Simulated assay, not measured.
Amino acid sequence: MGGLGYFGIVIFGIFAYMASTEAQLQMNFYAKSCPKAEKIILDFINKHIHNAPSLAAPLIRMNFHDCFVRGCDASVLLNSTSSNQAEKVAPPNLTLRGFDFIDRIKSLLEAECPGVVSCADIIALAARDTVVAIGGPSWRVPTGRRDGTISRSSEALANIPPPTSNFTNLQRLFANQGLDLKDLVLLSGAHTIGVSHCSSFASRLYNFTGVLGTQDPALDSEYAANLKARKCRSLNDNVTIVEMDPGSFRTFDLSYYTLLLKRRGLFQSDAALTTNSNTLSLINQILKGSLQNFYTEFAKSMEKMIQNNVKTGSSGEIRKHCAVVNS
């Protein structure tokens, strides 16, 4: 009886090991099932990104927003239905761009290998490849993610750090994703590329305390005056866009961190990084190091984020169309 019990434990252990190894991401996951998959994505990006270099920022932002809700499962791509408001319509995602770009890549992959490559992997690979295409850092993207079938607006609102976040809120929301303060500072560095709508920070200029006319004292007064005069001329401007890293918003460099120390971070969440001694120290360390060192450290944090809480193995599905679950 004891021998049979031991044998059962051994067999169970083998099956548990098989399940855990099968359910892990791996480099070149599609090597046999769709060998051209990653090249198809890369070729499409290299063909089109030079006509739309500004797309790198929206795609890495899409990657963040996807991973912060239910893991990186492409739930951010799902459309709302008559009975459900999806992540897409949540306030943090209303300004997301690049959905059509992802759909076009998905169409090419479906033509090559129907039902094989997940939308979640397409987001992760496209974010990396577009950043590399504009001269930014590269990072390892192990694949094998599967697509989720649930997308709720309320969850996006609860989990994606808003631009009005203070330090405590940022620390909590990043910790929920298994990310620490170093990851917070490094991943915030993605704000070195891209633009923002005035609506994401106008309250800092016009209504900071809830009283019309009050301004965030943490924002450099000269920078604030310039924003008011030339860009966001009213609290209710939902149209005008502003460079998040003025002067080099298409270059993945260190100037974002330089601006933080000059109190010229555009969002409250940017300024919040300077309110904690640990994160302030990390900012100074980044600025004392080389650009290549920043790229190396940024890559580590990206790799950590895109592998957290993913669906693999038999979880989820491989969507035929990224905007809808399979019928």
Results as ranks from 00 to 15, higher is better:
C232I: 08
L266H: 11
A31W: 08
S188T: 07
E317P: 02
R319T: 02
F167T: 01
V239E: 12
E155Y: 05
I41G: 13
M302D: 01
A158M: 09
S75D: 08
S165R: 09
Q307Y: 12
P53I: 03
S269M: 01
L157Q: 12
V116G: 11
L235A: 12
A323Y: 15
P91R: 01
A56L: 02
G71N: 02
I160L: 12
K320P: 02
L170A: 04
L212C: 00
K300M: 15
A190V: 03
Q171S: 15
A127S: 08
I318Y: 06
T258E: 08
P91S: 03
D216E: 10
T81N: 03
N276R: 07
D129S: 13
F201L: 05
H191Q: 13
S281P: 00
I286P: 09
S33M: 06
G71W: 05
V211M: 06
K304Y: 06
E297V: 01
A120G: 11
L125G: 00
A74S: 13
T81G: 00
R319F: 03
R61D: 07
Y17R: 08
A74G: 04
I306P: 05
A37I: 05
E297M: 10
A90C: 14
G3W: 12
A299I: 01
A23I: 12
S290W: 00
Y256I: 13
F12S: 10
N236R: 04
I286V: 12
D220A: 10
Y30Q: 02
E110H: 01
P114C: 13
L219V: 08
Y30T: 01
D245M: 04
Q285G: 06
D73R: 14
A323P: 03
E155A: 14
D245E: 09
N207P: 02
G316Y: 07
S221L: 08
L187H: 14
R172M: 08
D43E: 13
P163H: 11
L273H: 04
S315Y: 15
F208V: 04
G316E: 11
C34H: 04
L94H: 01
N293L: 03
A74I: 05
T149W: 11
F7G: 00
F249Q: 09
A272G: 06
S20Y: 15
K32W: 10
T209L: 00
T258I: 09
N293K: 05
A111F: 09
I150V: 15
V310R: 01
V185A: 11
S153K: 15
K36M: 13
T296L: 14
Y6L: 15
R146K: 07
G71M: 09
G247R: 01
L205I: 12
N84G: 00
K106F: 05
S138V: 04
P35V: 05
T192N: 13
G71I: 00
Q85M: 02
K262D: 14
A23C: 15
T296M: 14
K182P: 05
A74T: 00
K288H: 04
L266F: 08
P142R: 06
L170M: 14
A86E: 03
L219Q: 10
G136E: 02
H321S: 10
S165Q: 09
F64C: 03
F29N: 05
F174E: 12
A90I: 11
S138K: 13
H321Q: 11
